[in-house]
Amino acid sequence: MEDRVLDTVITAILVVVVFVTLYPFYYILLITLNEGTDTAAGGVYLWPRQFTFSNYTYFLQDPKWVEAFGISVLRTVIGTALGILFTSLVAYGLSKQDLVFRSGYFLTVVIAMNFSGGLIAFYIVLRSLGLINNFAVYVVPGMLNLFFLLIAISFFREIPDELGESARIDGASELRIFARIILPVSMPLLATMSLFIGSGQWNSWLDSAYFVQDEGLRTLTYRMMQVINQTMVPSGDTQAAAMSRTSVTPFSVQATAMVVSIVPILGVYPFLQKYFVSGMMLGSVKG
């Protein structure tokens, strides 16, 4: 009897926690599917009172959003691939005990992880490299991920040296051993890195705000932030007239921006969630 009462109490608490956690997301989705002017009147809590897709139509009618979406996809794919490649290559080299100046390299990594020159110094470095207002500014700075570098070093240390010895005897180079032997047995590590680096690339918007002036290079999340941070009063008679014709409001457009920005990530996470668990274990068990 006591166990049944305890189970009931725990279940009730969990139901409340789930509701409190999920309802804000549901409410934002609800706002996007209801007419903005009707939402402004209040009383919309559980389902759309005036169902419509006009918020999404208004939001996506500007071709700049399609262009921004393409830039975000491109930076995510290229940035993730380069980040995994170079982080894995450096980690593989540092995992070798006989590497010359290995301690110095490790000291450099530790210093870089704990100390930063600041935004101004970072901007000067990017400008000297010609990366300002350039698509490469999205992918080059993230080609070496120091956090995953340490995790990958620990992971590669656990791989038996015997796997590569026979290939060395046959004359295989270290790059060939790395590509043909090490990477295939490191799929949990690579999958975890791709998930975290990819989500970071997709969600990043500060680099677009600070280091890019070309409107054609703006990312999707940057334009989302523009919409979310706009005032509740429409700017200009043209925008006000457009909103009045479509029954949308600045708040409904802001809610639509939030939904569009998180849908791609929410669509991927459920299928790859197990790799996030594996990623946490890589850092704790093999660390």
Rank of each mutant, 00 (worst) to 15 (best):
G70D: 13
L94E: 10
L30R: 05
Y56T: 03
L29R: 02
I28E: 07
K96D: 01
V140L: 13
V66R: 15
I84E: 02
N55P: 11
N34G: 04
V110S: 06
V73L: 11
A112P: 13
L74W: 05
G42W: 07
D62T: 02
T76E: 06
N55Q: 10
Y123L: 05
A68T: 08
D62N: 11
I111T: 11
G93C: 08
A112I: 12
R102N: 06
V110N: 03
L85C: 09
L131P: 00
Y138N: 05
T80N: 01
Y123I: 03
A81K: 10
F86T: 08
I31E: 13
N34L: 03
G142S: 12
V139K: 03
Q97Y: 14
I31Y: 10
I78W: 03
S88K: 03
Y56R: 08
I84C: 11
I71H: 03
G79F: 00
L89D: 10
V73Q: 04
I124V: 15
D62S: 07
A112K: 15
N34T: 12
V125R: 06
I71L: 03
G36E: 07
G130F: 13
L129M: 15
V66A: 15
Y27N: 12
K96I: 02
F51C: 00
L129Q: 12
Y26N: 08
V77T: 04
S116V: 01
S54P: 00
Y123C: 02
G36I: 09
V110Q: 03
G42V: 02
I120E: 03
F115V: 14
W47Y: 14
A121T: 10
L99N: 10
V90C: 10
W65N: 07
G70Y: 15
Y138A: 00
I71D: 02
G83T: 07
V110T: 07
N55F: 05
G118V: 00
F122R: 15
A112F: 15
G70P: 07
F135I: 13
L107K: 12
T52R: 06
G93M: 09
K96A: 01
D98H: 14
Y138R: 04
F86N: 05
P141C: 09
L94F: 14
L89K: 10
Y26H: 12
N145G: 03
E67F: 03
S116T: 11
F115T: 11
L74P: 00
A136M: 14
P141I: 07
Y58S: 13
N55Y: 09
S72G: 00
A81Y: 12
S88P: 06
I111R: 00
V66P: 04
M143L: 11
N134Q: 01
A41T: 15
L60Q: 00
L29V: 14
D62Q: 02
I28A: 07
L33F: 14
L146F: 14
V44S: 05
